[in-house]
Simulated assay, not measured.
Amino acid sequence: MRPILFSVFGYNVQSYGLSKALAALVAAFLLARAFDRVGLKRDSAYSLVIWATVWGFVGAKIYYLFEHAPNLTLHSFGGMGFTWYGGLIGGAAATLVIVRRHRLPLGVVAGAMAIPLTVAYGIGRLGCLLAGDGTYGKPTSLPWGMTFPHGVVPTDVPVHPTPLYEALAAIVITAILWGIAKTWNPPGVFGAYLVLSGISRFLVEFLRINSPALLGLTQPQLWALASVGAGLVLIGCTRHRTAPQPVPTDTTDQRAPTQSSPRA
């Protein structure tokens, strides 16, 4: 694994940070295309991704610091140590602000965000894998077990490469969301994202080394169950609605028909 990919003029380019930057760029590209399809402005998509990313990192760091409050060190305030669900809370808050400020339809935006969020998460997890940041799993004797002797949190014992598992799961979830987005309404697509991503995180936690928080479940598993529940409610409340058609952007040559025009 390579926590530091290369150096430029003495500055180390870290795989963790680069993966997060790449994830944001890809998410912005995908969300802009999704906005195009439903007749929303690309600029709104870029603003949404920028602010959701910034406040997502802030939320992820704050959550991490509260989570590890009894054992904080100066290293805890550095460039590593972020909690995904804290990032989700911070990013969601920023998204609501941008949606309100740009007067965007929340349900349509949520549906458009489902695939970009999934792809970005998968890219970010590959960065975690390269960095060996400690999000790997328990020791394993399986042939694909990995060691991270030069990772940020090193280990010479073969462990489950859980970030890789999550990246692969993100590919599967993306394919499912892409398929159902053709017929499901946007809130339902976002509900499916909450369900599928929640199931993925709940299952992978059995292989990770997080400590139980309640009823033998880890904190991420509790958040995952909440995600699945919210997603099922969202799907149930919107299952009878159909997907909206794209808003036409070309209004040229839409004159009233003349007498010689055929009638439908």
Rank of each mutant, 00 (worst) to 15 (best):
G145T: 08
K138W: 07
W223Y: 15
G122P: 10
V152H: 03
G137T: 09
I180T: 07
P154M: 10
P161V: 06
T218Y: 05
P161Q: 06
L126F: 13
I123Y: 06
L203I: 14
V159N: 10
W223S: 13
Y165W: 02
A224P: 12
W144D: 03
I180C: 07
A169Q: 12
L217S: 00
V152P: 03
V119P: 12
Y165E: 05
Y121L: 15
T147F: 07
L164H: 03
L177Q: 11
A167S: 14
A131G: 05
S197I: 15
L126Q: 01
A170Q: 10
F190W: 13
L222Y: 12
L217C: 06
H150E: 14
L130W: 14
H160L: 12
V159T: 13
L126Y: 07
N210M: 04
V159A: 09
F206M: 11
N185A: 15
G145C: 07
Y121D: 04
L194N: 05
D133Y: 06
F206I: 12
P212D: 05
F202S: 06
P154K: 12
L217V: 01
L215V: 10
A170E: 06
L214T: 00
G216R: 04
G124L: 03
G216D: 00
S141W: 13
L177C: 09
W184G: 04
T135Y: 12
A181Y: 13
P163G: 02
G179A: 14
L164W: 06
E166T: 10
T162M: 10
P187A: 04
L196C: 08
K182M: 08
T147A: 13
Q219R: 14
L164G: 01
V189Q: 02
V152G: 00
V204P: 01
P212I: 11
A170R: 07
E205C: 00
L142S: 10
N210T: 09
G124Q: 01
I209M: 14
A192V: 13
L126T: 09
L214G: 02
I180Y: 12
G127Y: 06
H160G: 09
E166N: 08
V152Y: 03
V159W: 02
D133C: 00
D156I: 10
V119Y: 08
L130D: 03
P220K: 04
E205Q: 08
Y136G: 04
L177N: 08
C128M: 06
P149Y: 05
T183Q: 14
R125D: 04
T140L: 04
L203H: 01
R201M: 05
T218N: 08
P161D: 02
Q221M: 03
F202P: 10
P161G: 05
G137P: 11
V157H: 03
S197T: 15
W178L: 15
G145K: 11
T174M: 09
P212M: 11
I171P: 07
L214V: 14
A213K: 00
T183C: 07
S141T: 15
G188M: 15
G145N: 00
V157D: 05
P143H: 11
V152D: 07
L196Q: 10
L217H: 03
S200E: 15
W184I: 06
S200W: 05
I176R: 09
L222D: 11
A224T: 05
Y165R: 02
G198N: 00
